[in-house]
Design a protein around this nucleic acid. Structure first.
Lengths: 202, 202
DNA sequence: GCAAAAGTGTTCCTTTTACACCCATGC
DNA sequence: GCATGGGTGTAAAAGGAACACTTTTGC
């Protein structure tokens, strides 16, 4: 999770999700991208509206209705384009989340469930991986999100049968063990297959 | 679809989804239930937040951000509790929708897709059927929503295996043909199974 | 040469699909 | 008695789960 440290009251100094107010002439999506850029300096790969939160007392100041979005970002993207210092925005392991400002823990819960539900039938996992990745990264990603172990061989078989990955001629070594081929998600193939009625399902 | 005829400008006299403004001290869900009651006189069985629409010019008057909900209602409920006259609120077959006010056609698109996506893994179809229903009603419902024919025998086999329906001792005749048993969705059974990790999937 | 990770196939079992005949009722 | 819809079972095919040994590298 990418969190920011709040600079103003309420919850000053506590961690929170980035966010802000929608301007008069922009769409919701535009507002999200703008706020994210302003507060964390990143451009996102994937953006999806999550849910709108509107309990009357979720903000101690005023009535605030938040349209929450969730984004997927390659960590490498962030490291390259970061325009803020580490004090203000920080990646935090989702298993070590502190108590956040407002109802933001609840929002994260909803987001994680959405991701878990969606990654099985939409190829959004690639938005979290580098463009070229060893197969084990994909495997570990699914295991992480589902929070359970998946048979390596069956997973690979199934995924390769979908025919949306290309295996490259490059190999990469992770320090120890046999180096593995790099793979790349072929968006074009995916959309062609989707159009012709084939469904992605892992 | 349950539509209302607009009484005020803009789009006066045209069909639209029921809706209105959120009051200061109510949650979004409460606002939906209130508006629905005020404009159509019904209480809903099932309510789910759908999506928030916020393009800057979706309403010609002001900037309006709409948090859309979708509800499922038994038609019989509506006929009983209707508190409005037929001029103001009306059921319209979804295959015969006129062009609606604002971006409401788009909202309905999103809702139909949500329903289609969800009915396969959550037992929300029952919210559209009477409490006791012949099996053929359930079958027809799924065929209608998926817009494709489903083998009657396989569908029944699969559904009964889920073990969340009870077959009653009553039979009902539809005028012609052999009368069929009535069934009832057993919510308690469903939640027990869900808790124990069994997944509903049709 | 040993530890670590990658590559690869087969068998069994479960699930899904396709499909046809009989039964109860209204007219 | 005929038209209509309801009730039921089986066989073949496909898909998913379980599982072990070999290869390449770093140290």
């Amino acid at each position: 999770m990418l969190l920011i440290k709040r600079k103003a009251k309420p919850f000053k100094g506590k961690w929170a999700l980035p966010g802000g107010l929608v301007l008069d002439k922009e769409s919701l999506d535009q507002a999200v991208e703008r706020e994210l850029r302003e507060e964390t300096g990143i451009d996102v790969n994937y953006l999806e509206q999550l849910y709108s939160f509107g309990s009357p007392n979720r903000d101690p100041r005023n009535r605030v209705i938040s349209v929450a979005y969730f984004a997927l970002v390659r960590k490498s993207n962030f490291e390259l384009h970061a325009s803020t210092d580490a004090e203000e925005a920080k990646w935090i392991n989702i298993k070590e989340l502190p108590k956040l400002s407002f109802d933001h823990n609840k929002i994260i819960d909803v987001a994680v469930n959405r991701l878990r539900g969606k990654i099985g039938y939409q190829p959004i996992g690639f938005e979290l991986l580098d463009e070229k990745f060893p197969f084990s990264d994909l495997h570990k990603l699914y295991e992480l999100i589902y929070n359970e172990s998946i048979d390596r061989r069956n997973f690979k078989k199934k995924f390769l049968q979908l025919n949306i990955l290309e295996e490259l001629d490059e190999k990469v070594s992770k320090g120890k063990g046999r180096p593995g081929s790099l793979f790349r998600f072929n968006r074009t193939k995916y959309f062609k297959l989707k159009k012709s009625g084939v469904v992605f399902e892992v």
